[in-house]
């Protein structure tokens, strides 16, 4: 019996059921979404990682970053399995029903990517017969479904676990084009991937951080205040310069552009 008890204690220590330290929040990311979140030598890197780390330091809470498949991440947040979500998360009406957003902090559209040597243009990259890729569960994927597939345009849409794999497949010719958030698309080009942008779909999306519906830990006021503090102290402009050289700095917080019925 004593042996059994020892095993049970060991198992519990092992699983870390001993309770988390106070004020430590789990932040879910998709660690394959440059320049917002990625992993380099075992460490989380990216614009969102730096912003959230600084906000946490400013407002006195701790964060633990957890890499999860994008598919599961919004629902995990809705169910309270994670406390904060960041990874270039677009505000959408569907998501707004299940999670709460911070103030928007970034504006993006969707870029149409093709191979570097391709002769396709914005129109021919997405007409009937083409195979277009996007990460499963992203606004890019949903745009393809809603605006092309649902309109009866005979394209094949292929869902990928991450954009990394979609870009790989585009380079290797298994896809004709990829629809991807503009800044992420640009980061692939900057990293020397053999792809180019041939057009922009003006979706007018905005990024924000998100918390569980009802904000059970009162995190949104902190995140919003942190965003403004970073902007006013000039750190925000530094970060924008670091990750997006030459890009004009917009005033934080942005005005929410999305209108849901």
């Amino acid at each position: 019996m004593r042996k059994l008890l020892a095993v049970a204690v060991l198992a519990m220590a092992f699983l870390g059921i001993d309770g988390l330290a106070a004020e430590k929040y789990v932040v879910g990311v998709d660690a394959a979404f440059p320049p917002w979140t990625w992993v380099e030598r075992g460490e989380y890197k990216g614009f969102d990682v730096e912003v959230m780390t600084r906000i946490a330091a400013l407002l006195g809470f701790e964060i633990e970053i957890r890499d999860m498949p994008w598919e599961t991440i919004v629902t995990a947040l809705a169910q309270g399995k994670i406390d904060i979500l960041m990874s270039g998360l677009s505000i959408t009406c569907e998501r707004m029903k299940v999670i709460d957003y911070s103030e928007p902090y970034w504006s993006v559209d969707q870029a149409i990517l093709v191979r570097e040597d391709s002769a396709l243009n914005a129109i021919t990259a997405m007409i009937g017969g083409r195979t277009v890729g996007a990460q499963s569960g992203t606004t890019g994927y949903m745009w393809l479904e809603d605006n092309l597939v649902a309109q009866g345009i005979g394209i094949k849409v292929r869902a990928y676990p991450t954009y990394e794999e979609a870009i790989l497949d585009l380079e290797r010719g298994r896809l004709d084009s990829v629809l991807c958030d503009t800044d992420t698309a640009q980061s692939y080009i900057d990293a020397g991937r053999r792809v180019k942008i041939v057009g922009i779909v003006k979706t007018g999306e905005q990024y924000a951080y998100a918390v569980t519906k009802g904000d059970p830990y009162r995190l949104l006021p902190k995140i919003n205040a942190g965003l403004v503090q970073l902007y006013e102290s000039g750190e925000w402009a530094e970060l924008v310069q670091k990750y997006f050289p030459g890009r004009p700095v917009e005033k934080i917080p942005l005005k929410l552009s999305l209108v849901c019925r």
């Binding site: 394959a32 990625w38 992993v39 075992g42 890499d67 999860m68 599961t72 991450t162």
Partner: peptide, 16 residues
């Protein structure tokens, strides 16, 4: 389920 095991970590390296 959100545990970066061997294969996921290999994919980090491939991406990087």
């Amino acid at each position: 389920v959100g545990i970066p095991e061997l294969l996921r970590r290999a994919r980090y390296i491939i991406a990087y």
